[in-house]
Design a protein around this nucleic acid. Structure first.
Lengths: 233, 233
DNA sequence: ACATTTGTTATGTAGTACATAAGGACTATT
DNA sequence: AATAGTCCTTATGTACTACATAACAAATGT
């Protein structure tokens, strides 16, 4: 029997702690009873007793759900199910220094993918005011030009504005959250590379051009990033 | 002074518990000391004593970090910093029944954006074998045709395969994780809508067409979804 | 009728005690 | 000397108790 097969059949023994189990049981319980935001949860002691564990363990599990924003607690009123903010949980682990190299690369590609794909939303929702503001940002860059730190800030402002123009708040926050990742990746670059299509060019397209032209423009703008991507072996 | 201004200046009083504080302090500590995956953490008791809180509180905070995969603990060896899996934390809160309506909509749009944007990655990495497998999936649909449950499964298989073909594992997992969200949204649709461009058409483009053609094809394929999106007011 | 006090209750925090598993050290056996 | 077995230490996992605190409810006083 090959080692590979063995690996599939015998996974590593994961010693689940009681807190892990209680967390899972609680999630199941909430699902089964189809709890909705605002519904009150049982008391800690009741949960502990009915599960046959100490209150301590229950509190560890609840502490996790609380961190994710799934439950909120008030001192005497008890606990209620809440609407978790999906991105805040992501935010907690998105540290470029902690996550692995390959994941960093994946995230970078996802950003490129998003930027190539958001033309449709953009043309659906952009306003004249938005485009003017974007133009201001692009012009600011042209004027000040030089220094590296400012260049990066401006780059962020420009692309951030584009995300904002899609009218999708989650998308905007997502991109905002990814900034440290890109800051990290950009800091690895030796020489700043400038695409063939500038920010002002993109603004011009937004003003008078079509969706497809914008997509082509964005592709040109990001081309040097695509060039560095690993092709298929 | 308008109410709005007041709201901005005086946020709600958030009663931070000790566990919250300890969690934050621990994160700061790990950052400051620039801990890397594998480095051992201090013992629970040491942390508790140096922070002046009970071991109980420390355990709650550690329990959270453990859930996120940031630390792993072994019985006597102590705790070590680990590489969190960024998506598993997202997975925990991505329940279409819990997250809000507007976030659901946002996520749906993000998926559309991704599908419109992944042509570049796709053409960079697709292999002949991939395209053949995709064709098989598309053909299977054509043959069996009818039943709704199968149609959905096939839809998922087809688009899932496309994500897989990008060679971006994080992206693939991300899309996989979003499936329940779409299952939920699709279940709200009364009549199944079929785009002008079929799966087989897309395969044909992948075989002989260009990136741009594929993007146009995908746009046609998803057009009815875009049609339903809210325009800018 | 309203304000004040008192009581109750569920969560938050502290502290103690013991179980358990994982090493490490030490000894015994071949 | 190498291996096997035993004991000991140690850090985490779990349980239990006790009390603080805030929020609400009820009772009380004016």
């Amino acid at each position: 029997m090959s080692n590979n097969v063995l690996n599939n059949e015998l996974g590593p023994i994961v010693q689940k702690t009681m807190a892990d189990v209680v967390e899972i049981r609680l999630r199941e319980y909430l699902k089964e009873k189809s709890f909705k935001p605002g519904d009150p949860l049982p008391k800690e002691l009741e949960i502990a007793q009915s599960l046959g564990v100490s209150r301590n363990v229950v509190r560890e599990a609840l502490s996790r759900l609380r961190m994710l924003g799934m439950v909120e607690t008030k001192k005497k009123r008890g606990m209620v199910l809440a609407r978790p903010d999906i991105l805040s949980s992501l935010e907690r682990v998105l540290d470029p220094l902690i996550i692995g190299e390959s994941t960093l690369q994946d995230i970078f590609e996802i950003r490129l993918t998003l930027e190539m794909g958001l033309a449709d939303l953009l043309y659906l929702r952009k306003t004249k005011k938005d485009v003017e503001e974007l133009e201001q940002i692009a012009k600011t860059q042209k004027v000040t030009g030089g220094r590296q730190t400012f260049r990066i800030k401006n780059e962020i402002a420009f692309h951030g504005k584009i995300y904002q123009m899609t009218g999708n708040e989650t998308l905007q926050r997502f991109q905002n959250m990814l900034l440290p990742v890109f800051g990290y990746l950009v800091s690895l670059e030796k020489v700043p590379i400038i695409g063939k299509v500038s920010h002002l060019d993109l603004v011009e397209i937004l003003k008078h051009g079509s969706k497809e032209e914008f997509r082509q423009g964005m592709l040109q703008h990001l081309q040097h990033h695509f060039d560095k991507l690993k092709r298929n072996p």
